[in-house]
Amino acid sequence: MKKILILILFILTNTFCVAQTKNTKLPSVNVKSINGKTVNTDTFENEDNPIVISFWATWCKPCAKELNAISEVYDDWQEETGVKVIAVSIDDSRNAAKVAPFANGKDWPFEIYIDANSDLKRALNVNAIPHTFLLNANKEIVWQHTSYLDGDEEELYEEILKL
């Protein structure tokens, strides 16, 4: 009980300064590119255009559905909004070696990263995948969505158009 009180106090003491900020910035976390390089999320860049970050895994069917659906309309999206999609796989060593062949086999035109230790997943409070984030030009999270139903990419696109 005492522990909980202390933690609540801690949170309260911070609430004031928390309240001053608006959108969450993308946290700074290391992930791996599919050619093995360590990449910090700070270096995610799209020249002041919006970025979509989508969490997926090779075994997750709705994730593949979502990325397939976006892949089909990606050319149009890019032309109209300049958006860039970054697909972050949370596959562990059971499937990590399959990530590049899987994404290439599907012909996905996205930047792909692997978050093997789930550091980025935890930093962004992702409970389950698919989970998709929309970042504005300042790389602040302006919208996010969990799970995927057929047609959900249209809602995402409406949000991109608002930026």
Binding site: A97, K98, A100, P101, A103, N104, G105, D107
Partner: peptide, 11 residues
Amino acid sequence: LGYSQKGFGFS
């Protein structure tokens, strides 16, 4: 061991 190109992946 893995190989991949557009539309084809093998591991």
